[in-house]
């Protein structure tokens, strides 16, 4: 479904992603690991063509989207549901209005139907009580949950994208979010989670990529990851081993 072919991207003169080639099937559950600034989020942005690669091609379901116009990209983007880091809720809208945003924009539902749908989605993610709160009144965990509910509101995504979905959360809330991610990812639906928390990646993914200096230096399953002798990966996994102990 997703094909990045020799993609390079940089911000100004600073290279972020270098010669990345990657194929991800529609039903795969992939975790992209690595330290800060290694280009993890950049991959998600390239998949959605929120940024244009400096070189290389990006294809979704066999369609090359590298040079596609913004209007044409809308259909492609609706195949995905993304939860950005920190949730990216609209500050000026309440929780209800945030979740109802896409329903109001793209559906012909009545206010009663929208209200019922919003309540149902908030119940699924476990924050129904926060329906009338503003984003700045939510805790970190609630923020992510509302963002997940909002991303589910309008479309039937083929793949979920999560950008640091558990970063900044306490272990209990992080586990709850991982549980929610697993529940939502039904059979035939894939996910890509970008994270630097190995324990959360292991909870939701079956395939792991490791980025170092903007390059994909590892691509394999859990056993291969845990058994890797790459010094950078070994050092990265030490945090996880410490948590397990």
């Amino acid at each position: 479904m997703i094909f990045l072919d020799d993609v390079t991207f940089g911000y100004g003169k600073r290279p972020v992603l270098q010669n990345a080639t990657l194929k991800i099937a529609a039903d795969e559950r992939v975790a992209i690991l690595g330290g800060s600034g290694e280009g993890k989020t950049t991959i998600l942005k390239l998949v959605l063509r929120l940024i244009r690669p400096d070189s290389g091609r990006v294809s979704i379901d066999g369609t090359d989207i590298t040079e596609m116009a913004e209007e044409e990209l809308r259909e492609i983007r609706r195949k995905f549901s993304i939860v950005f880091q920190e949730g990216a809720l609209f500050d000026s809208l309440s929780v209800k209005e945030n979740v109802a945003f896409c329903l109001r924009e793209f559906s012909k539902m009545t206010e009663e139907q929208i209200d019922a749908k919003v309540r149902e989605l908030l119940r699924v993610v476990g924050v129904e009580a926060a329906i009338n709160l503003m984003p700045d009144e939510l805790s970190g965990g609630m923020h992510r949950r509302v963002a997940i509910a909002r991303s589910l509101a309008a479309f039937e995504p083929k793949m979920f994208l999560y950008d640091e979905a558990t970063t900044g959360l306490d272990p209990v809330n992080a586990e709850r979010i991982c549980h929610l991610i697993n529940e939502l990812c039904k059979e035939g639906t894939g996910l890509i989670i970008v994270t630097h928390k190995v324990i959360d990646a292991l909870r939701v993914a079956g395939r792991f990529l490791f980025l170092l200096n903007g390059r994909i230096v590892f691509d394999g399953n859990k056993d291969a990851l845990l058994g890797s002798d790459n010094p950078a990966i070994v050092e990265f996994l030490n945090e996880f081993r410490y948590e397990v102990k």
Partner: peptide, 16 residues
């Protein structure tokens, strides 16, 4: 702030 907080990216992903 909407740019830095990915709110504008969210709009684009939603097709707005």
């Amino acid at each position: 702030l909407m740019i830095l907080g990915h709110q504008v990216d969210s709009l684009r992903v939603f097709g707005v």
